[in-house]
């Protein structure tokens, strides 16, 4: 078990190393474009050359990458061009805000999707199953910006119950968190619910559930004591793997509601060609995604008794 975890962590580190190389090559392989992005397009060729020389960009790519990686590992991400401040200073508060948004969404998605999936999966083809399935197809078909428009149309424009921006300009306000969370929940709920349903349907058809029914246990006891224990492994894995998706959704939602999170920061950095900020944001996003994948694998081993000893 310990060995398996260590192997998984090694894979995580290897993946991050390759990802860092991809990100570096995409954004910094050609020094001249870096110079244009950092000191601006309206500079002379001499100024750009001078800047490249002063900042060590005329060295071979390999040497630059190793130095870049070293600085990255020590938390030195360089200077943001747009914010005129160290990237780390800009990034951490934004990341904290996104963590609040994402974890709130997950806290709603997890129980709701599992409940809906279990209800639908207990009896395949029942009216409850059919309506939950149809609803989840519809909600997962709405792009996040579209459901944001629809929800904002109802709750901001028509009913005027909720604020339309979530910039938290006048201090923290939970009402500004409602719509961004609702959009994320709407998009992700259906997928997790469907996966839970499939898992539940499969478990309900197994021999041990039939045995439990045949030996005269009550339906509630069969479900809570026999079926759920195995059916819940899948939603755990799906939910953890889904954090990767949630990160994409967070970018759209933060952009729409002007929420000051890391997704909006990445977009702003991208629109302003703020490459050092893009690098840091991308690496953090991939790290979160890869780490949650490792967590899903390790968790699956812990939850599944057949894999526990290996």
């Amino acid at each position: 078990m310990v060995l398996a975890v260590l192997k998984r962590l090694g894979l995580l580190a290897a993946t991050m190393l390759v990802v860092s190389l991809v990100v570096f090559l995409l954004l910094e392989a050609t020094p001249s474009s870096v110079a244009i992005k950092v000191i601006g397009p309206y500079t002379t060729a001499e100024q750009q050359q001078l800047w490249l020389e002063q900042n060590g960009y005329l060295r071979p790519v390999g040497e630059r990458y190793v130095e870049w990686l070293g600085r990255f590992l020590t938390g030195d991400f360089g200077e943001s061009i747009r914010f005129k401040a160290p990237v780390a200073e800009v990034l951490w508060p934004r990341l904290w805000n996104t963590a609040i948004l994402g974890l709130t969404a997950l806290a709603v998605i997890a129980p709701c999707s599992i409940l809906l999936g279990v209800i639908a999966g207990i009896r395949e083809g029942s009216p409850a199953d059919r309506s939950i399935s149809v609803a989840s197809i519809v909600t997962t078909s709405l792009p996040e910006f579209a459901s944001a428009v629809f929800l904002a149309g109802v709750f901001v424009f028509w009913l005027a119950w909720l604020p339309g921006t979530s910039s938290m300009a006048e201090g923290w306000d939970w009402r500004q968190l409602v719509l961004p969370v609702a959009v994320l929940v709407l998009y992700d709920l259906g997928y997790v619910a469907r996966m839970t349903r499939a898992s539940m349907v499969e478990v309900m058809a197994t021999a041990y559930v039939r045995t439990a029914v045949l030996k005269g246990l009550s339906r509630a006891r069969v479900i809570t004591h026999h079926a759920l224990r195995n059916a819940l492994i899948t939603p755990f894995t799906v939910l953890t793997l889904h954090i990767n998706w949630l990160l994409s959704g967070v970018i759209v939602v933060e952009a729409f509601f002007a929420y000051k999170g890391f997704g909006a920061l990445l977009l702003e950095a991208s629109l302003n060609q703020d490459i050092y900020l893009i690098e840091a944001c991308t690496m953090v996003a991939v790290l979160v995604a890869v780490a949650t994948q490792a967590l899903a694998d390790i968790g699956y081993r812990l939850l599944n008794p057949r894999l526990r000893g290996t």
Partner: peptide, 12 residues
């Protein structure tokens, strides 16, 4: 390993 939208943004 990349969240898909992060990859899109990076490439674009």
């Amino acid at each position: 390993a990349f969240p898909v939208l992060v990859l899109y943004i990076l490439i674009i």
